[in-house]
Design a binder for these strands. Structure first.
Length: 426
RNA sequence: GGAGAGGUGACCGAGCAGGUUUAAGGUGCACGCCUGCUAAGCGUGUGUGGGUCAAAAGCUCACCGUGGGUUCAAAUCCCACCCUCUCCGCCA
């Protein structure tokens, strides 16, 4: 959420942000409602103040046995006006709040302005595309050969986009999650959180998924709960409506959860194999920081996520998103894209964003600085990383001429078996 | 799901047969005084948000789980909901 006072004083800047992000929001309506609200508030305050004063007079007169019936009937009218004003005020505030929730975050000035991903900037390449002496298979072919996945049965159980990992495929999945969690906990000093995957509407609004993306969320209608699209939602809201002392910052959480996305409107786009799913697993990194340090923290999370790919020795690139490709709540985002040799393309495995105080305002997360002053802290997060596309890159990168798959060194510590002919155990 | 108890400021805790309580008192915290030092004691201050103001001060409004309602007036009365605890039932 953008500060209403800021909108009032910098309307053009907000207008540009909405435009550059390809969003729609009615700024004029907000400004008009704001003005009306302040007018109503003033009138309401005046009348309430009068009511308080007369109330004291009534008390005194009654005590002296004087007649107060005239005052009462006079005040009865004032009360009626107050009720009417209050109703208008409540209505105005509700409308204003609802509209405010539709204003996207303002991109950081450094972010390249652009309509879509064609304006994104590749800012880094790490490693090289592996060379094969044979034509590499894609992950689906490899999975079939080695019985690592069963997508048809997943579709039978739940519909398309709900994968079943089988045998060693499942073991690798579990090991990867464990590896990434331990890596961030031990090397990067994160605290692990195991959180609910069903959350309330308020929680979903706090991080900015609602109201905009309701159609993309799975919803449990009977209880008005939502399945989380990312651990960002429950983890960031962990401190909702709280005030943290500055000396506790930064706070860094890592959390593994399954993630659920309806992907409404994206059917047919890059859906082959594990590329786009309704349910997948992800390890997420979340930071709560003092505002002046948030861009430093953004780089830190990017490095933390990159190190996972480095440890697995996978080629990847880092992309800085342009304004048109930024998410609703983000001020600046990096995507990390890993190379998938079988598919012959880069796949997004991590998205790292600084939300500045946008989520903190929505979720009401503040901090108290050393002078005792209150302010909204900054929140950030990044995938560290999502497993399906990571798995694609792993299988496709570590495949052999025989169609088997070697295990990366770091996963061997997790007793991950090599994937060979004899791996087909069922 | 049923029955009961409860939800008040950083914390504890009074107020709850409506009106000088614009939330008592205590603890903690901050500053000051006193003291050889510490402790004790004394004094002062001590929330959040909105409005007004160039800004600060000041003034003012709102906030006693949340949302409605009754009333000239609500922490206090009424209704609905949420959360916590205890017991029962049901399920793991």
């Amino acid at each position: 959420m953008i500060d209403l006072k800021y909108i009032r004083t910098h309307p053009q800047e907000v207008r540009n942000a909405i435009l550059n992000k390809n969003e729609k929001a009615n700024l004029d309506a907000i400004l008009a409602l704001d003005e009306n609200r302040r007018k109503l508030q003033y009138e309401y305050d005046q009348l309430r103040s009068k009511q308080h004063q007369v109330s004291q007079i009534i008390v005194l007169k009654k005590r002296n046995g004087e007649d107060v019936s005239e005052l009462l009937s006079e005040m009865s009218e004032v009360a009626e006006q107050i009720r009417a004003l209050n109703a208008q005020l409540t209505e105005t505030n509700t409308q204003l709040e609802n509209l405010l929730l539709t204003i996207p975050n303002i991109p950081h000035p450094d972010v390249p302005i652009g309509k879509d991903e064609s304006a994104n900037r590749v800012i880094k390449l790490w490693g090289e595309k592996p060379n094969f002496t044979f034509t590499p298979l894609d992950h689906l072919e490899l999975a079939e050969k080695n019985r690592l996945l069963d997508l048809p049965r997943g579709a039978k159980i739940s519909g398309s986009g709900f994968p079943v990992y089988t045998g060693i495929g499942a073991i690798w999945e579990r090991a990867l999650i464990n590896f990434m969690l331990n890596f961030h906990i031990q090397k990067h000093n994160y605290t692990e959180l195991a959180v609910p995957v069903l959350v309330t509407r308020k929680t979903m609004t706090g991080t900015g998924q609602l109201p905009k993306l309701e159609d993309d969320m799975y919803r449990i209608e009977a209880d008005d709960l939502f399945l989380i699209p990312t651990a960002e939602v429950p983890v960031t809201n962990f401190f909702a409506d709280e005030i943290l002392p500055q000396d506790r910052l930064p706070i860094k959480f890592v959390s593994y959860t399954p993630c659920f996305r309806r992907e409404a409107g994206s059917y047919g786009k890059e859906t082959k194999g594990l590329q786009r799913l309704h349910q997948f697993n992800k390890v997420e990194l979340v930071h709560f920081v003092e505002p002046s340090t948030s861009y430093q923290a953004l780089e830190e999370i990017r490095e933390d996520a990159e190190e996972i790919l480095q440890a697995l020795n996978l080629h990847y690139r880092v992309v800085e998103l342009c304004t048109g490709d930024l998410s609703f709540a983000s001020a600046k985002t990096y995507d990390i894209e890993v190379w998938a040799p079988g598919l012959g393309k880069y796949l997004e495995v991590s998205s790292i964003s600084n939300f500045e105080d946008f989520q903190a305002r929505r979720a009401n997360i503040r901090y108290k600085d050393t002078q005792g002053k209150l302010g909204y802290l900054h929140t950030l997060n990044g995938s560290g990383v999502a497993t399906p596309r990571l798995m694609i890159a792993l299988w496709e990168t570590y495949q052999t001429k025989e169609g088997t798959i070697n295990a990366p060194e770091v996963l061997k510590e997790y007793n991950v078996p090599e994937i060979t002919e004899s791996s087909k155990r069922w």
